[in-house]
Computed example of a mutant assay.
Amino acid sequence: MIFLIYGFKIRNWITFHHELRADREAVLRTRKPKALQSALIKITTQPLISPNRPSHFALFIESIYWLIAYFIGFEHPHLKERIEYLDFTNKILEYHEVNPEISQDDFIVLKACSSDGQ
């Protein structure tokens, strides 16, 4: 049972980080982080339109899903995390354009090692 729970946690962690890496690659290829941010916000805030109320069974299944997600972990990052990560990727791009002699990987190390975080 423990192996099953931790197996799901590891799978969700991998999926979670693949999602963030996909966002980063999209920004690095398109060089338009604000466009991706606005698209994510539009998708997330778009109201779900359903003509019928969900059945009791559907509500029960959704409740079980949320309980499992709470204890095992979520597969996808929340919108706030994705936007913060896109902002960080944008800072990397801007810094790299100003200082082309420093690679993007070196910037990440410099940012992590800086004492003031700026």
Rank of each mutant, 00 (worst) to 15 (best):
residue 77 P to D: 00
residue 12 N to A: 13
residue 13 W to H: 09
residue 88 F to I: 12
residue 52 N to P: 07
residue 70 Y to F: 04
residue 28 L to Y: 07
residue 46 Q to Y: 07
residue 64 I to R: 12
residue 107 F to W: 09
residue 31 R to N: 08
residue 59 L to Y: 06
residue 5 I to C: 05
residue 100 P to A: 10
residue 101 E to P: 05
residue 117 G to W: 11
residue 10 I to D: 06
residue 87 D to V: 10
residue 2 I to Q: 11
residue 102 I to D: 02
residue 98 V to Y: 03
residue 43 I to K: 11
residue 53 R to H: 13
residue 25 E to H: 05
residue 56 H to C: 14
residue 88 F to M: 15
residue 27 V to T: 02
residue 94 E to G: 05
residue 83 I to R: 03
residue 15 T to D: 01
residue 101 E to M: 08
residue 75 E to N: 09
residue 85 Y to G: 02
residue 19 E to L: 03
residue 54 P to E: 15
residue 26 A to I: 05
residue 26 A to C: 09
residue 10 I to M: 09
residue 100 P to M: 01
residue 33 P to F: 03
residue 117 G to F: 13
residue 15 T to L: 03
residue 94 E to I: 14
residue 41 I to Q: 10
residue 74 F to D: 09
residue 99 N to S: 15
residue 52 N to C: 12
residue 46 Q to H: 13
residue 25 E to W: 01
residue 39 A to S: 09
residue 93 L to C: 05
residue 71 F to G: 02
residue 34 K to G: 01
residue 62 E to H: 14
residue 89 T to K: 06
residue 43 I to P: 00
residue 20 L to K: 06
residue 73 G to R: 02
residue 103 S to V: 05
residue 99 N to F: 05
residue 84 E to S: 07
residue 20 L to C: 06
residue 102 I to R: 11
residue 14 I to A: 00
residue 60 F to C: 07
residue 26 A to N: 14
residue 30 T to I: 04
residue 27 V to G: 01
residue 54 P to V: 15
residue 116 D to I: 09
residue 55 S to Q: 14
residue 37 Q to R: 03
residue 75 E to C: 05
residue 87 D to T: 13
residue 6 Y to G: 02
residue 20 L to I: 12
residue 104 Q to T: 11
residue 63 S to G: 14
residue 50 S to F: 00
residue 79 L to P: 01
residue 46 Q to T: 06
residue 90 N to V: 04
residue 16 F to P: 04
residue 92 I to M: 08
residue 41 I to P: 03
residue 110 L to V: 00
residue 97 E to R: 14
residue 8 F to K: 08
residue 115 S to P: 00
residue 14 I to T: 08
residue 50 S to G: 09
residue 22 A to T: 07
residue 43 I to H: 07
residue 35 A to H: 06
residue 97 E to L: 02
residue 104 Q to M: 08
residue 93 L to R: 10
